[in-house]
Amino acid sequence: MVRRRTAGLAAALLTLGVLVPAGVATAAESNGGTRVLALGDSITDGFNVPGGYRINLWRSLAAAGHLVDFVGTQSNGPADLPDHDHEGHPGWRIDQIDAIVTSVLRESTPRTVLLHLGTNDIAQNHDLAGAPVRLSALVDHIRAAAPNADVFVSSVVPLTDPALESRANAYNATIPDMVRSKGSRVHFVDMHVALTTADLADGVHPSRTGYDKMAARWASALAAVPGSAGNDGAPVTLPSGLRSLRVTTPGFTDRYARHQNSLGYTAHVDSGSSALLKSDATWRVVPGLAGGCHSLESRNFPGYYLRHQDSRVKISPDDGTALMRADATWCGRSAPTGMRLSSWNFPGSYLRHINSELGLATPGGSGADDTASSLVPDIAWSFDAPWAP
């Protein structure tokens, strides 16, 4: 995430004329995933529902196995939203966002930009005839500053006031053709049809239901553009039989996943290691106990399987319960340096090593294991020949 910048002046809340305090600098949140910039006004900020659409968008992407890093100079949302960063400025028009966008993009370096903007131009009746031209110029500036980013430009959500809605309809009608003129990296998202005025809390800003509908529309748009939410790998079949799981994090590639006193760790293993260590670091890949994907059975404790419990990873016997079998089932995903092991019952959470211990980490989650900058390499494993054949 980008480092916070204290706002120079308080921004007027969208359509209401109420001032909000300037932002306070806070530490950035980062999980090393695909950088996504939510850009816009108070609807992006989440007026009425702090965090707005970003709450369910993050959850949807995480559930789909995506490692996403929201970026921006602003931060808000509930404590259970793992990533609060965004670039939503209450009360701001297109021209005001345009004035900062180049510096924001150069600092945040997003892979993907989500743009919902124009409601304040409409509500403030600010040169409406020129609003489409300003939006087009803004998209050009985004493309110039982030030429490798996919840019998703949405129509604005409905407005309850008939006069404002008429202006919104005229503005929205210009967006699809503008987007088509910008090339293959710019995409139109019809947000206006995703909501009705019943989904608004105050005639302008969405309610929680409305924000959730926005999240679903953004998630659908991202899913249609490969790589825009990150290349978190296709499902893969793990190699069968006995294997040893080697760490792929640079500087730690001589370490392997092993069990010791029932808990999971990593340890240096080589040809001179003890027979016990070599056996502890060898696993049998078997069909998943939960009915799909795979489970990892201990080489020297048959019937004991690698499972997560309270975020720690350990070995446990198969007691036949649905919970144990789900905890002990892992789904492989391809990764640049090996394979990721995603939890069967916590999609988007992965087997991770940190400080020589094995745990379950959720990208962007609230735990220290989830937010460390090394998370991405730490959840990739190489399935090597077994140390104890």
Rank of each mutant, 00 (worst) to 15 (best):
D369C: 01
F346A: 15
N355G: 02
L351V: 09
V376Y: 14
S343F: 05
S356I: 03
G365C: 07
L375A: 10
L341K: 09
S366E: 08
P377N: 13
A361Q: 11
D369N: 05
V376K: 13
P377D: 12
G367F: 05
S349K: 10
E357F: 06
R340V: 05
G364H: 04
R340H: 09
G364K: 04
M339L: 14
D378L: 09
G359L: 01
T371F: 02
S366G: 14
N345V: 07
T337L: 12
W344C: 03
I379N: 04
M339C: 02
D370M: 06
P363L: 08
A361I: 11
M339G: 02
N355Y: 10
P363C: 09
A368H: 05
S374T: 15
L360T: 02
F346G: 06
L358S: 11
D370L: 06
I354C: 00
S366H: 07
R340Q: 15
S366F: 05
D369F: 06
S349Y: 09
S366C: 01
S356G: 04
T371I: 08
D378P: 02
I379M: 15
R352Y: 01
G359V: 01
N355D: 15
H353K: 03
S343L: 07
T371H: 01
L351H: 03
T371Q: 13
Y350I: 07
L358K: 11
A372R: 12
S366M: 06
A380N: 14
P377L: 14
T337W: 04
P377W: 14
G359D: 00
S366I: 06
G365V: 05
M339Q: 12
S343C: 08
M339S: 14
L358A: 12
S356M: 10
L341A: 11
G365Y: 02
G367D: 09
N345T: 08
R352A: 04
P347K: 14
